[in-house]
């Protein structure tokens, strides 16, 4: 068991003929993910690196039975690509693209909420279930099969956490990068809900950062609903107010969104907050 992606994942890559799309389609396939094809409008019927290319997501789904899509379409066209995947009834849509305008994501999110599709991202590294499926841009070899769930707003900081776990001999059930934008498809709470139901996940590391209140909302949800141990790290304790720290969503506005505020709330609901980013793995180990 695991969440969102596994041995049953049939993946298509939207934007498969672009350099990023193709590179990562191959990387996902090499990891063992069942990549059944890709979509690039106008290039349907061709093959690239032995992947079948289709003109539309609905055609790709009809021909391959795809249930998951990984999106590498550039930001101006990515909202359209997500909506096309929703329209084609793709179950899990993962959007890697960075730089989608917030107003576009507000509209996309509204459509997602009224559909049965799950959106992960945008501006995220994707999802991996070690040993089963890699649907994203993360390096596969740092992961290890196991029973710890990882949720994060960041990319490389997630790799850091996963690497610490693996070095300590602790494997992961699934690792989900939810993305660094202000409006994202799935929140910490949405993914925690899946980990709560997953009988093969024993504990969770959540990696947040400054900006917004999604960590606080997750904390309040954990208090009443989540029964497994949680370790958290919040990046950006040293970030100045009002400055965007790389991610579009990483900005402290007014009094809200600081690392201190997030850590305090999480600690108040029983989440163990790692004091340093170098101790995420050890902190988790101390709870097992």
């Amino acid at each position: 068991m695991s969440i969102l992606v596994d041995n049953n994942t049939k993946l298509i890559v939207q934007g498969i003929t672009g350099s990023q799309g193709l590179f990562h389609a191959i990387q996902c396939r090499d990891y063992g993910t069942n990549v059944v094809g890709g979509v690039t409008p106008g290039k349907g019927g061709t093959k690239v690196e032995s992947f079948d290319v289709f003109n539309s997501v609905s055609e790709a789904r009809r021909e391959t039975g795809a249930n998951t899509s990984l999106i590498f379409v550039p930001a101006p066209f990515a909202p359209d690509a997500i909506l096309e995947a929703v329209d084609a009834d793709i179950d899990i849509i993962i959007c890697i693209t960075e730089g989608i305008p917030t107003n576009d994501m507000i509209n996309v999110k509204k459509v997602i909420d009224c559909s049965s599709s799950v959106l992960i991202g945008p501006n995220c590294p994707g999802i991996i279930t070690p040993g089963q499926a890699k649907v994203g841009i993360m390096p596969g070899y740092i992961h290890k099969e196991g029973r710890i769930g990882v949720i994060s707003r960041s990319g490389t900081l997630t790799y850091e956490a996963v690497w610490q776990l693996t070095q300590l001999g602790i494997g992961q059930s699934s690792c989900v990068g939810i993305g660094g934008d202000p409006i994202i498809g799935s929140s910490f709470t949405d993914i925690l809900n899946l980990f709560q139901e997953d009988k093969d996940t024993d504990a969770v590391i959540m990696i947040g950062e400054i900006g917004g209140t999604s960590e606080q909302e997750a904390g309040l949800w954990i208090k009443d609903n989540f029964t497994k141990p949680v370790v958290a790290f919040i990046a950006g304790a040293t970030a100045p107010k009002g400055k965007r720290m790389g991610h579009a969503g990483a900005i402290i506005s007014g009094s809200s969104g600081s690392a201190k505020e997030k850590k305090e709330l999480l600690e108040s609901v029983g989440v163990k907050v790692s004091p340093s980013p170098a101790e995420m793995g050890e902190t988790l180990l101390s709870l097992l």
């Binding site: 990319g155 490389t156 900081l157 997630t158 660094g180 950062e209 990046a235 720290m245 990483a250």
Partner: peptide
């Protein structure tokens, strides 16, 4: 490399 790791 990476915003989250840079903050961390």
């Amino acid at each position: 490399n990476g915003a989250g790791l840079a903050m961390a």
